[in-house]
Design a binder for these strands. Sequence first.
DNA 1: GTCATTTCTTAACTTAAGTGAACGATTTCA
DNA 2: TGAAATCGTTCACTTAAGTTAAGAAATGAC
Lengths: 193, 193
Amino acid sequence: MQDILFDFIAKYISLTEEEKNVLLSLDLFRSVKKGTILLKEGQKSRDEYFVLKGCLRKYYIIDGEEKTTAFFTEMDALTPHCVKENTPSEYFISCVENTILIVTNPDMGVEVNAKFPKFDLMCRMLAEDLLARQQINFDEFKTSSPEQRYLNLLQNRPDLIQRVPQHQLSSYLGIKPQSLSRLRARILEKSKG
Amino acid sequence: MQDILFDFIAKYISLTEEEKNVLLSLDLFRSVKKGTILLKEGQKSRDEYFVLKGCLRKYYIIDGEEKTTAFFTEMDALTPHCVKENTPSEYFISCVENTILIVTNPDMGVEVNAKFPKFDLMCRMLAEDLLARQQINFDEFKTSSPEQRYLNLLQNRPDLIQRVPQHQLSSYLGIKPQSLSRLRARILEKSKG
DNA sequence: GTCATTTCTTAACTTAAGTGAACGATTTCA
DNA sequence: TGAAATCGTTCACTTAAGTTAAGAAATGAC
C-alpha cells in the first residue's frame, strides 16, 4: 500500500530508507468507507488528500442537482480550495468506493518540511505538474463535443467508466444522464454499422 | 509599466528597492506587435511569458479550424506546456493586441534564484494559485450552459468581450461563432421583454 | 427473500447548438 | 483608393442535448 505513496514521490524526488520510515511513522493513513462525505458545502477544512486506493468525487449542488466536476483515483492529490483560502467550501467531496487516503494539512507541511527540505521542492513540482495536466484537460474539454469527451474518457481513464455510476459520469462530461445513455446507444449503433 | 510587474510580485513576496533594480536590469521586457505569433504548433520553445499590457491568445488548429482555449491579459502568467516537457507545442500563441511582455526561461530561473531565494517561493505560490483558479474556472465551465458561460464572462472579464473578436471568443466559450451571435441576440431579446 | 430506493434506459417533445450559405460591414493591404 | 479578405449577423435546416415522464434493472435495507 505504501508502495503507491513512494512510487508517487519517486516521480519527483528520491527518499532514503530512513526518510521513508519517518514518513510512515507520521501515521497519515486513513481508511474511509464508500459513501462517506469528507467535505461538505459551507464547511471549513484544513485537510488535503492523497489517494492510495479507491476513488473520491468532487461535486457541487446547484439548484438541488449534483454536478460532479472531478474524480480522484490512485496517485491523485486533492487540496480543496477552501484549505488555501480558509473560506467555506463551495463543494462536496465524497468516497465513490472504500478508499485509503493520506490526509495532511498545511501545518504539518511546516513540520515535515523541517525534516525534509526536499518536500517543498516536491510540492512545487507537483503543483506545476497538476497545473499543466489541468490545462490540457480543460483545453480538451473545450474543444470537444460531449460524444468526443466520452470517447476520450474511454481512452484515457477507462477504469472510471467501470467504477463510477453513470449519473455521476454524465455531469463530469457536462451533460445530463439521459443524454449520456442516448450518446452511448448512438455510439453502439454506429459501431454495429 | 514596471509597476504592473511589482504590483503582481507584491501579491506574493515583498522586494527591496535594490532587488527591484536588479530585476529591471535583467532586461526582460519585450514589446510585441498585434498579430505576432509567439509560438507555433510543432515548435519547441523555452520561453515563458508574463503579460504587462495587452493580450495573448492560445489556440489549437483542429481540422483546419482555430479553437481558442485561453486569453492572457494584464498580470497573467503563461508557461507553455512544451517548455516543461521539452516537446513540440500542440498549440499556437499569438498577440491579440500590441503587447508588452516579460519573457523568461527556466535557465534564467536558476540565475535569478541565486540572487532572490524568495523567487522560488513565489513561483510555488503562483503555481498553486493558478491551479486553484484554473480548477474553479473548469468547474464553472462544466456546470454551465454556453449562455451562462457568456453571462459569466460578461461579469468576470467584461474587457475581453470588448477587446477580442467574436469568433475567437466563441470557441473560448465552447461554441461556434454563429451560435454566439444567436445567443447574444437571444439575451438582448429577453432583456427587452 | 422482499420491499423500497436508486439507477439506468427509453420515448416524445422542446430547445439550443451545428452546418451551410448568403449578405453587408469592416478591415487589410497593395 | 479600391479590391480582396475577414468578420459579424441572419436564415433555413439538421442534429444533438434538455426536459418530463414512465418503466425496467440493479442495489440496499430490513
